Simulated scan of single mutants.
Amino acid sequence: MKLILTSEVSGLGAPGDIVEVKGGYGRNFLLPRGYAILWTRGGEKQIASIKKARDAREIRDLGTAQEVAAQLKALRVVLTTKAGESGRLFGSITTADVAAAVKTAGGPQLDRRRIEIAPAIKSLGSHRVTVKLHPEVTAALDVEVVAA
């Protein structure tokens, strides 16, 4: 099955890429969730607009990605949230929360889809978050979660 990706899918590709996948994966996962559209000749026109939007969000070159990684390393990010008596959070910290906290801390604007929170953050304290800035550059970011 030939599809055009509309959002980034880990291990498959980026928005605007044309991919060939098995039928069940495409019909049951990618298409219903809006991660892809069926490939058609008319759909190829949409690829240009998808790639244009992706290029506007993406960090262009390796040097810029390394500069942003250095900024993130020097940044102190503090997230304030509600927590119970034992230090357990009501809910969890999401990638959108981390992206907003980085922006308010004076850091660069990050795409939430590039942020990876390996074990879910559900407790107070210091946690490590990774940010994929470029295919060759991954930055580690320390996030301090405090009670409100």
Rank of each mutant, 00 (worst) to 15 (best):
R88M: 08
A99P: 02
V19W: 05
D97C: 09
L12C: 10
D61H: 12
R113L: 13
L30Q: 05
I121V: 14
I47K: 13
V146N: 12
L62M: 12
R88E: 01
L12W: 08
R112T: 03
R112V: 06
K132W: 06
L62V: 13
T40H: 02
K52L: 14
V143N: 08
G26P: 03
T95G: 13
K132T: 14
A69L: 08
G91C: 00
K82S: 01
V129K: 08
L124E: 10
V143C: 11
I93T: 00
Q66V: 09
R128Q: 15
P135D: 11
G125R: 11
I50L: 15
E8G: 15
I93V: 15
G91T: 02
G16H: 10
E116W: 02
R41V: 06
V9I: 11
I18E: 04
Q71D: 05
F29G: 02
K51H: 03
R88Y: 02
A100P: 01
V131R: 05
A105G: 00
S7G: 11
R54Y: 03
A65Y: 07
D17W: 00
W39F: 14
T95L: 03
E67N: 13
Y35A: 14
V137S: 12
V145E: 04
K103D: 02
G24K: 04
K52P: 01
A14M: 15
I50M: 13
G13D: 06
S10D: 15
R57Y: 04
L62H: 14
A69P: 06
H127S: 07
P119R: 12
I4A: 00
L38M: 08
W39P: 01
T130E: 06
G84R: 03
K73M: 04
R33W: 06
G63W: 09
K73Y: 03
A99W: 00
L30V: 00
A56I: 07
A56S: 13
